[in-house]
């Protein structure tokens, strides 16, 4: 069976100017990512700011052209598809429901827009389908006549989800969909997404920095560091037995609501990852608490889903 989404050796480099006369520097935002995701699966992608997760999202959505490699959705190369075709296959939900909805359009029109753009439907059909999808995400017909500014953050995110799903895409890409929301609202949105995934069988990519959320929603997790997946494993396995030192540090930094445990020492030091200056060898070695001399010179081998010298036999 063809995977719902397949990524081969995907890379994206940017050239950033340094000052007025400086030589442009190369930023390797995404650096050789491979991925195949079966139909209906949910992949969580975690990583800290600057790790390239949002660039990866844009590449997967076809909003950026890759420097190398390709993204294939349902067996077709994304770059070979037109915008309309792409929109029918893959749709995003972004972090900020305040800036991702047009403030001058009513909710119903926001959700109807993808259907209008695709063409071929009568306005009555468009209206009916849009209202049905809004109802599906918990927005009443009465609220559909309002403007985004008249809705709460959670309601706006529901509208963004309805807009993403109205074309019945194969893949839903959620980039930090609950980061801007309060916890009580976050729970509602996560429950809604879980329900929709189950009912519609959509393949989901869920990008987040919140590991507790990712553990809750994902079947499989990829940990991203400076443009690469340093570890990939089924969610239960990754959270129970993380292999890569970076994954271990990330998990150790999650502050679960358990009083008395204090704040753990994650042991990462204070060197910050810099995508314009990716270290040689293993890209994590300057911060790694267990690095050995080999780590700074040789690229780490891939062992059991994790790229690390220490895991090599």
């Amino acid at each position: 069976m063809t995977p719902a989404i397949e990524i081969r050796n995907l890379s994206k480099r940017f050239h950033v100017k340094q000052g007025l006369f400086g030589k442009p520097r190369e930023v390797r935002a995404v650096d050789g990512i491979d991925l195949a995701l079966p139909e209906g699966a949910t992949l969580g992608i975690v990583g800290e700011s600057g790790c390239g997760k949002s660039t990866l999202a844009k590449l997967i959505l076809g909003l950026l052209a890759p420097s190398e490699g390709e993204v294939r959705v349902a067996g077709q190369s994304l770059m070979a598809l037109g915008r309309r075709e792409r929109a029918k296959l893959i749709q995003p939900v972004f972090q900020d429901p305040f800036s991702s909805l047009n403030p001058r359009r009513r909710v119903l029109d926001v959700v109807a827009m993808p259907l209008v753009a695709q063409g071929g439907l009568s306005s009555a059909e468009i209206r009916a389908q849009s209202l049905a999808m809004l109802e599906r995400v918990g927005i009443s017909a009465e609220m559909a006549g309002r403007y985004p500014a008249q809705l709460s953050g959670g309601q706006r995110q529901r509208v963004a989800i309805a807009r993403a799903l109205v074309l019945r895409p194969r893949i839903l890409l959620c980039d930090e969909p609950t980061s801007a929301l309060d916890v009580s609202v976050q729970a509602q949105i996560l429950n809604l997404l879980a329900e929709l995934r189950r009912d519609l069988g959509i393949t989901t990519l869920f990008i987040s920095h919140n590991l507790a959320v990712v553990e809750h929603v994902a079947d499989e997790v990829a940990v991203m560091y400076l443009g690469r997946f340093v570890e990939r494993a089924p969610a239960a396995e990754l959270f129970a037995a993380p292999r890569h030192p970076y994954t271990r540090a990330l998990l150790a930094s999650v502050l679960t609501p358990e009083p008395g445990l204090g704040v753990p020492d994650v042991g990462l030091g204070d060197t910050m990852p810099d995508p314009s200056n990716v270290p040689t060898g293993c890209r994590f070695h300057p911060r790694c608490p267990v690095a050995i001399p080999r780590c700074s010179t040789e690229a780490p081998p891939l062992v059991g889903g994790a790229e690390c010298h220490l895991l090599a036999p």
Partner: peptide, 17 residues
């Protein structure tokens, strides 16, 4: 409302307000 690793089975319904 909080997803707590290890406490709540993944995929189960979170409490909501």
């Amino acid at each position: 409302c909080l997803p707590v690793p290890g406490k709540l089975p993944p995929g189960s319904q979170l409490g909501t307000i």
